[in-house]
């Protein structure tokens, strides 16, 4: 199959690669860029494990062609921690028990990150609604909801401490 040149800005780094037109963004992230933090749970758009941010909005990278992300910004789970520090959403998922096996976690965290960017103080229902595309089989979601609520208060908490 004919290959196309695609330029992606992934976690702030510009990458240009030649890829067949039928390949998914998930496949290119994992196989070509070795960013294996983004998971393939179904390759069918059902589970949300492959969620990444495209220009800040959560998308299912298994359902999207890499070519259609050309010249756009992609943020994966690897792009959230800065200077050796976990992002508040990552920290909260860890400390509040929002993950168990960890396989849905990258997608879940990316979706939660996007939620808190657009809605800094979500209700429980808004959290459950925003994460309803991300399936988890371990937690029953209880501690995931707590983790997102905790992350929402985190910056405020830090302000109070300083």
């Amino acid at each position: 199959m004919k290959k196309e040149l695609v330029t992606l800005t992934v976690n702030g780094e510009e990458k240009t690669l030649a890829t067949a037109a039928n390949r998914s963004l998930l496949n290119v992230l994992r196989e070509d860029l070795n960013l294996t933090g983004t998971k393939q749970g179904c390759d069918d758009g059902d589970c949300g494990a492959c969620t990444v941010l495209l220009d800040g909005e959560p998308v299912l990278s298994c359902m999207m062609l890499a070519a259609s992300a050309d010249c756009r910004e992609v943020t994966t789970i690897e792009g959230l921690a800065r200077e050796g520090k976990l992002d508040r959403v990552q920290a909260a998922f860890w400390t509040e028990g929002g993950m168990q096996c960890g396989f849905c976690t990258p997608g879940m965290i990316v979706s939660s990150y996007a939620l808190l960017k657009r809605n800094p103080d979500p209700s429980e229902h808004e959290i459950r609604d925003a994460l309803s595309n991300n399936l988890c089989r371990c937690t029953g979601y209880t501690k995931i909801v707590t983790a997102v609520q905790h992350a929402a208060t985190f910056e405020e908490f830090l302000d109070k401490q300083s």
Binding site: T36, G37, L86, T95, G97, G102
Partner: peptide, 23 residues
């Protein structure tokens, strides 16, 4: 007490290597 999982950081950062992540 409430001890966060000791293998939590690799899971929340995408560093955890599952079988399909091996190359």
């Amino acid at each position: 007490t409430r001890v966060p999982m000791t293998d939590g950081p690799p899971k929340v950062t995408g560093q955890a290597i599952y079988a399909d992540d091996l190359r």
